[in-house]
């Protein structure tokens, strides 16, 4: 092991931060898409193009 700890420290921090950035971006994208889909549905309902679902 010895000095391998430096290599592992570099690798894990890089992997975790890149994974975290990707995760947060994809989660944000999903929440924005959900918001816009809901908004589009609201528009469709209010303009009478779609029958409301019970």
């Amino acid at each position: 092991m010895g000095q391998d700890i430096y290599l592992l420290g570099a690798f894990f921090v890089m992997a975790v931060l890149m994974a975290l950035e990707s995760f947060l971006l994809i989660r944000k994208r999903r929440s924005l898409l959900v918001l816009f889909r809901k908004r589009a549905r609201g528009d469709a309902l209010s303009s009478g193009h779609e029958t409301p679902v019970e």
Binding site: R29, L32, F36, D43, E50
Partner: peptide
């Protein structure tokens, strides 16, 4: 990949009230 994902997010956030997102994202 991450920059273009963020670009799309920022565009939606910034221009959310414009007309184009309504045409681009269909209703659920």
């Amino acid at each position: 990949a991450v920059s273009l994902t963020r670009f799309g997010n920022l565009l939606l956030e910034r221009e959310g009230m414009a007309g184009w997102p309504r045409g681009a994202i269909p209703a659920e």
